[in-house]
Design a protein around this nucleic acid. Structure first.
Lengths: 256, 256
DNA sequence: GCTGCACCATGACGCACGTCAATCAACGGG
DNA sequence: CCCGTTGATTGACGTGCGTCATGGTGCAGC
C-alpha cells in the first residue's frame, strides 16, 4: 500500500507552510490590495492611485507590534499581506485575542472618528504588511467619493450585526458551541482545503488564541478539541488546526 | 417632621409617571426630532424639510409591535417619542431584550444595507412614535449629503466599539457585574434624577427585560438586585428601578 | 540526535449560576 | 375595597467550566 498512511489523531506535525518572510510592499501589491477591496471597487485607476498616494505601507515580521492598546489612534489600516491579530487586555491583565485579520480587512481607527486611543493591540502573527491612512485623509476620501462612504458604512453595519449576533450567543452557548463557531469562522476566512487532511486554518493559532476567540480558557478549549479529535471531526496539533468534518462541526454550533 | 418618610426598601409602589398615550406625531415634533438628531445637525431647515417629506411617522401604543424578526427589512427608523424595545428570539425560542431605545436613536435596517430580513423584533414599551424612511431614500440622502454619511458612519462605528467592549466583558464578568453595567447604561440613557429617591430609570422594565440585557435569568437578576436593595445601592419594585448610590454601583462593574 | 522550552493534555476540585418549584406582593378591574 | 393575575422573591439542587497542578510532546537550536 505504499507509504504507511498516517492515521487520524496521529499526525501531530505542523502542516502549515513556511510563513511569509518580512518584506516590503511594492506598489503593484498595494494597488492590487486597494483594487480588490470592496470599498474601492467603484473607483478607476486614477482615483485609486490618488488614494494610494495618501497611504503608506509598512511591513512587520512575526510577533511585531503594529500598535498597542492605549496609544493614540489616528490611522486606519488595511491588511495587505499576512495575518494580523487584534487583542485586548482584560482588566485583570490577561491578553486575549479578539480577532485574526486576513488581507483586505480594515482595522485601527475604524469609524474614522471613534476613540482617540486604541482599545485593542495589533500584532503580526506571521510576516505581514499593511497600508495605513490617517483619519483626516480618509474622511476626505469619503467626502469626495460618497459611494465609497456607503460601502464602508455597509461593511461597518454588517460587522455590527455580527457583533450583535455574537453577543446573543456568547452567554447562552456552551464552550463547545463557541469554539465550533470560532473555528468555522476562521476556516471560512483563512481555511485552505487540503483534501483528505481537511480544511487547514492557515495561521499559527495556539490554544490560548482560540480560547480568546471563544471567550474561554486554554484548558477548556483543549478538552473540547481533544474530544473532537477522537471523534474525527477535527485534527490539530501545536499551533495548528484542521477541520475534517465541516458538517458535524457546524452541527456543534447548534447543540453541544 | 411632616409626612413619615418612606424608609429604603419599603417603598415598592411604582414611581413611574403615567406613560405617554397613543398619539400622532405632528409636523413640529418630527422636525424637532430631525433637527436634534446628530446626523442632521449640519443641515438647514430646507434640507431637513426635504428629508422630512421622505419620512413617514407612525405611532404605537404600549405593547404594539413595530416589526418582527424574520420580516423583510427595508426601512430605517428613528424614535421620535416613547421607548422602543429591541428583542431577539434565541434558537430555544425565548425572547430576550437586546436594547431599549430612547428618542433620537436609530434602528431597523441599520447600515442601509445589512440583512434583507429583520434579525430582531421591535415593540413599543410605552406609547411611542417613530419616523421611518426606506433604504433607497436613505441611501440617496447619504449620497447627497456626505457630511451626514460621515456622521452616521461615526455613530455606527461607535456602536461597533461598544459592542466589542460588551463582547469582551460578557463571558468573564459575573452576573452582578453585567447587571450593574446594564443598569448604569440605562440610567445614562433613560434616567431622571429624583433627588433622595435616586436616579429613576424612566421605562417599565421587568426583571425578565433586565435579564435579557445582562444576558442572564430573571432569578439571578432578582437575587443580585435584592442584595443591592438591602445594601441601599438601588431601589426597585415591580417593573421599575432607581439607582440610589451611583458610585457604589459603578464600583460593582469592576469587581463583583 | 540530544536537549530545553513552550505548548498541550488531563485530572481534581469548587463555585457561580441556570433550572425547577413554591410563596409572596403589587397593580388593575370590578 | 377586595380579588385575580402577573411579576418578584427565595430556596434547593445540579452542573459546566474556570482554576490549579502535573505530566506529556512537538519543535528549534546546537
Amino acid at each position: 500500500m505504499g507509504a504507511p498512511a498516517v492515521s487520524p489523531g496521529q499526525r501531530r506535525r505542523i502542516p502549515l507552510r513556511e510563513v511569509t518572510l518580512p518584506h516590503v510592499c511594492p506598489r503593484p501589491v498595494r494597488m492590487y490590495v486597494l483594487a480588490r477591496s470592496p470599498y474601492f471597487s467603484d473607483l478607476g485607476d486614477d482615483d485609486l492611485g490618488r488614494i494610494d498616494e495618501r497611504m503608506q505601507a509598512t511591513s512587520w515580521r512575526e510577533g511585531d507590534s503594529l500598535y498597542r492598546a492605549g496609544e493614540p489612534a489616528g490611522h486606519l489600516y488595511i491588511v495587505a499581506e499576512g495575518r494580523v491579530k487584534l487583542s485586548q487586555v482584560t482588566p485583570s491583565g490577561v491578553e486575549t485575542v479578539a480577532d485574526v485579520l486576513a488581507p483586505g480587512e480594515l482595522f485601527g481607527a475604524m469609524g474614522t472618528l471613534g476613540e482617540p486611543f486604541h482599545l485593542q493591540s495589533a500584532s503580526a502573527m506571521v510576516g505581514s504588511c499593511a497600508l495605513r491612512i490617517d483619519q483626516e485623509s480618509f474622511r476626505a476620501v469619503l467626502r469626495e467619493h460618497p459611494t465609497v462612504a456607503l460601502r464602508v458604512l455597509d461593511d461597518v453595519a454588517a460587522r455590527l450585526t455580527r457583533a450583535h449576533t455574537d453577543i446573543g450567543g456568547q452567554s447562552t452557548d456552551t464552550v463547545a458551541q463557541r469554539v465550533a463557531t470560532a473555528l468555522l469562522r476562521l476556516a471560512d476566512k483563512l481555511g485552505e482545503d487540503r483534501g483528505a487532511d481537511g480544511i487547514l486554518i492557515e495561521v499559527p493559532l495556539a490554544r490560548t488564541d482560540l480560547a480568546g476567540l471563544a471567550r474561554s480558557t486554554p484548558e477548556s478549549v483543549s478538552r473540547v478539541m481533544s474530544r473532537w479529535r477522537r471523534e474525527g471531526v477535527i485534527d490539530s496539533g501545536r499551533r495548528w488546526t484542521a477541520i475534517k468534518d465541516r458538517d458535524r462541526l457546524e452541527a456543534m454550533k447548534g447543540a453541544a
